[in-house]
Design a protein around this nucleic acid. Structure first.
Lengths: 254, 254
DNA sequence: TCCGCCGCTTGACTTCCGTCAAGGCTGCAA
DNA sequence: TTGCAGCCTTGACGGAAGTCAAGCGGCGGA
């Protein structure tokens, strides 16, 4: 069996036999940028796990507007909730960049879940991860300004970078990043400019952050995530240290 | 056993023996408006089911700002994800109005879930409901104006009302409603005024909607929910009929 | 090679919403 | 009754983000 696949987060803790059954019952599929994986309100018959690339999860309104609900990367699973609950996908999915995806038939997953408690645990784990991400997203939209949301995204991208500062390449289009953050491309572009005083410089898709700490100070104080919860809050940038307020949360009810 | 409790959505489809075990192992508790149920980042040891009243789910940032993630009413369950996944509550909860809540110890729920597949199914059902609600919330924040979001909320409140129009009383404070919709109280107040041309009139906590259809036309075209998914989209207000665009969703990728 | 498309940026303008401040209404307690 | 606190509304103002439009630059196709 494919070694890379077996190492995916989704299979951690799952007994070898069950994992192999899932792997041999499913298959890898490649999608070119823009290809459709599935459309909202169509029957949900597959679980997807991103092997490589980026997958856009979104919904479309009658007006043709599009809300990007998530951008998934290597290791992320989606479609779990639909396989076990409602029988229709509540969202659409396309490849945001060229992507490789592992697809597991729903009936197989359900069968294995019945047999193995660990599969169920993995599915619930994946769902609660989604839940937390959406909660954070909500909070960001309600409480943070556009430049702050952009800064938060940059911190997430830079979480693989070493050192107190670093540079990296945006993994997908800026206009897509804008949509994901609930803003227009123009606003995204201006927000990047607005981050210059905090030490962010941009050259095309290449972004350089002079000091992660400064960027954390700029945006993370408006977010309730603890250092451990947020992919952007890195070691050395422990907000509990930089922000004493964290210790003084007051329940505002009389 | 309490008849009202057994009828709660959470127990539908659960074998009588399992249900009774959960009911006798838990207990009902009453909270006055403002009382704290639990605080974010504390150990999650209970599942809660709202029997009556309203419960506010929220998070607090280092700056002291508060993001209201959900307002739960009769039949809604919360804490499920934490019982099975992470061991800490990712959110805080207080009573938004005087509330009665049924509390089931986490270890009992886990034990019963292992024994009964139906309990697991109920938990997942509850989680996927949360997931969908948060997705919708995100979409609303990103795509709809303040008056449109307020209109959507009014439609949800009026879903129990008969007729083409109707009136009802807001079940909780306007300032809380504002926070839930990600806006300030002043904006909420002005948004209500802005809905006057669409047939909404307000007198204190009493709201009268002249025509649900008109209100649906005003706000629901910017929302991707299908009539069946949205608590606000009532029979007789089928947007699939009023909005032909629903049939022409175009995948915007090249 | 040149052309045209697409993604991005920039500028000017408008609109929406948050902020600040004042005032009204209701309910409660002294 | 009077006073006060909390909630809500209203007005004036400012700032943030959306809209519209123009223009740049890279890339792929003809």
């Amino acid at each position: 069996m494919n070694l890379g696949l077996a190492a995916l987060r989704f299979f951690s803790g799952v007994p070898d036999a069950v994992r192999d059954a899932l792997l041999s019952g499913g298959h890898e599929k490649r999608y070119a940028k823009g290809d459709l994986l599935f459309m909202q309100d169509t029957p949900a018959d597959k679980l997807f796990i991103v092997i490589d690339g980026w997958v856009k999860i979104y919904r479309t309104t009658p007006q043709g507007e599009e809300a990007v609900l998530a951008l998934l990367k290597t290791g992320d699973a989606f479609g779990e909730a639909s396989i076990f609950g409602h029988s229709l996908y509540p969202v659409s999915a396309t490849a945001a960049e060229d992507a490789a995806v592992f697809e597991i038939p729903g009936h197989l997953l359900r069968a294995q879940a019945k047999a193995s408690h660990e599969v169920m645990a993995r599915v619930m784990d994946s769902m609660s991860r989604d839940l937390r991400n959406l909660q954070m997203e909500n909070e960001h939209l309600a409480l943070m300004s556009a430049p702050q949301r952009v800064g938060c995204l940059l911190l997430q991208f830079s979480s693989g970078t070493a050192g107190a500062g670093g540079s990296f390449t945006l993994p997908y289009d800026k206009s897509l990043a804008a949509a994901r953050l609930g803003m227009k491309p123009e606003t995204f572009s201006r927000a990047l400019q607005a981050l210059k005083p905090v030490g962010v410089s941009v050259d095309g898709p290449r972004v350089t952050v002079a000091s992660f700490g400064a960027l954390v100070d700029y945006c993370c104080t408006h977010c309730s995530a603890l250092p451990g919860e947020c992919p952007g809050a890195r070691e050395g940038c422990d907000r509990a240290a930089t922000c004493p307020g964290k210790k003084f949360i007051k329940i505002s009810d009389k």
